[in-house]
Amino acid sequence: MNYNWNWSAFFDASPEGVGTYMDTLIQGGITTLWTALISFAIAFVLGSAVGILRTLPGRRIGAFAICYVELFRNIPLLMQMFLWYFVLPEALPTDISRWIKALPDGSFYTAVICLGFYTSSRVAEQVRAGILALPPGQRAAGLALGLSRGQTYRYVLLPMAYRMILPPLTSEFLNNTKNTSVALTIGLLEITARARAMQEFSFQVFEAFAAATVFYLAVNMISVRVMQVVERRVAVPGFIAGKA
């Protein structure tokens, strides 16, 4: 392979004039993590709400929840990024639109919101599946104890459902983290964008992408480990999720 490897390129001055390429990559890594964490928090809240709605009786609520999930699941993420970033502001009143566009970190907010909604549709499906997988007796038992429907969800159904869906939620979290890279198309300087920028100016293509690769592998491994510990900690002995 006639390619000039030069691993020391990481310590060359970056084109921004401050710090090295390594510094810009680290900054990119931090942006990736923040984007991933905040967007997943949004996805978790929205997804739980929609997922719970789908298990409630009442046709209209259910239909809304189904539409929500289908809408966000059936449009490519990149397309959704563009819709949030370029199209949505045009639909708003001029003043609000101008204010949004003048925000200094516009692509960050857009990425967080876009990923939040996108991932929420997947979380919703998991939450619904988790609740429906519980024996129907649990709901009946909760209601029979005199708990309101809200209390039944809060104290009986959800604690078990979340425990059950912990592994799929972990993989949704990892997917969400990987998906932050799509935001480079709207100018978010996350790790892949930083690697691409390093490649453009240092011309060390493979070193730059190798750094990003190592970053994603590390995030993946650490997340999986952390979730294993969490899973064990919260396990309810004797129940399905408690077998670990």
Partner: peptide
């Protein structure tokens, strides 16, 4: 240019 055009 699109970013400029749309005031981004």
């Amino acid at each position: 240019f699109l970013m400029l055009e749309t005031d981004r």
